[in-house]
Amino acid sequence: MDKQKQVEGFNAMKIASLLKLPYGSVIPVVIELDERTTNAHLEPQWRKPLEVVVVVH
């Protein structure tokens, strides 16, 4: 049975401690990297053109 991991949040204090960051450091986002399982369910990717996403005023 493959191990299933679900990342719904993170413990900022634990990550700051592991990275030896000073007290009060802000960690807004954590990106997890791992190997893909052989039976991974992959959704199709889509991208909008840059002109549609970026609006210059």
Rank of each mutant, 00 (worst) to 15 (best):
Ile27Pro: 02
Val30Ala: 03
Leu21Asp: 01
Ala40Thr: 08
His41Thr: 04
Leu21Ala: 04
Asp2Leu: 06
Arg36Asn: 07
Val56Lys: 12
Asp34Thr: 11
Ala40Asp: 07
Tyr23Leu: 14
Val29Ile: 06
Trp46Met: 11
Trp46Ile: 12
Glu51Gln: 15
Lys14Ser: 00
Leu42Arg: 13
Thr38Ala: 15
Val53Trp: 13
Val55Asp: 02
Gly9Gln: 07
Ile27Gly: 00
Val53Tyr: 14
Asp34Trp: 01
Val52Thr: 12
Ser25Val: 00
Val26Arg: 15
Ser17Asp: 06
Glu35Pro: 00
Lys5Pro: 07
Pro22Leu: 02
His41Gln: 08
Val55Tyr: 05
Met1Ser: 13
Val54Ile: 13
Leu18Phe: 02
Pro49Trp: 03
Lys3His: 12
Asp34Phe: 04
Val54Thr: 06
His41Arg: 13
Val56Asn: 11
Thr38Phe: 14
Val56Thr: 09
Lys20Ile: 08
Asn39Cys: 06
Pro49Tyr: 05
Val55Trp: 02
Thr37Asn: 10
Gln45Trp: 12
Gln45Met: 14
Ser17Asn: 08
Ser25Lys: 06
Ala12Trp: 04
Val26Gly: 12
Lys14Arg: 03
Pro28Trp: 00
Glu43Gly: 06
Glu43Ser: 12
Trp46Asn: 09
Gln6His: 13
Leu33Ala: 10
Leu19Arg: 03
Leu18Cys: 07
Asn11Cys: 09
Phe10Lys: 03
Glu43Gln: 11
His41Met: 09
Pro28Gly: 04
Pro22Ala: 04
Lys14Phe: 00
Gly9Lys: 08
Met1Pro: 08
Leu33Asn: 13
Glu43Lys: 14
Pro28Tyr: 01
Pro22Ser: 04
Leu18Ala: 10
Ala12Glu: 02
His57Gln: 09
Val30Arg: 01
Leu19Trp: 07
Glu51Asp: 14
Leu42Gln: 15
Leu33Trp: 03
Thr38Cys: 13
His57Glu: 13
Ile31Asn: 12
Lys14Gly: 01
Thr37Ser: 14
Leu50Asp: 10
Ile31Thr: 15
Lys3Gly: 04
Leu19Met: 14
Pro28Ser: 04
Pro49Met: 07
Ser17Pro: 02
Tyr23Trp: 04
Ala16Arg: 12
Met1Asn: 11
Lys20Glu: 14
Lys14Asn: 02
Lys20Thr: 08
Pro22Gly: 03
Lys3Thr: 09
Arg47Gly: 12
Ser17Trp: 06
Leu18Val: 07
Val53Met: 13
Glu51Trp: 07
Val52Leu: 14
Ser25Pro: 00
Val7Arg: 12
Phe10Met: 00
Ser17Phe: 07
Pro22Asp: 02
Met13Ala: 15
Phe10Arg: 03
Gln4Gly: 09
Val29Thr: 09
Lys5Glu: 13
Arg36Leu: 11
Phe10Gln: 05
Ala16Phe: 12
Lys14Glu: 00
Ile27Asn: 00
Asp2Pro: 11
Asp34Lys: 12
Gly24Met: 03
Gln4Pro: 06
Lys14Asp: 02
Lys48Glu: 05
Ile15Arg: 06
Phe10Trp: 05
Lys3Ile: 08
Pro28Thr: 00
Gln45Cys: 11
Leu18Arg: 06
Leu33His: 08
Val54Tyr: 06
Phe10Tyr: 08
Leu21Thr: 01
Gly9Asn: 09
Val55Gln: 00
Ala16Cys: 13
Asn11Phe: 10
Tyr23Ala: 15
Trp46Gly: 07
Gln45Pro: 07
Leu18Lys: 07
His41Ile: 05
Ser25Arg: 05
Glu32Gln: 00
Val54Met: 05
Glu8Gly: 15
Tyr23Lys: 14
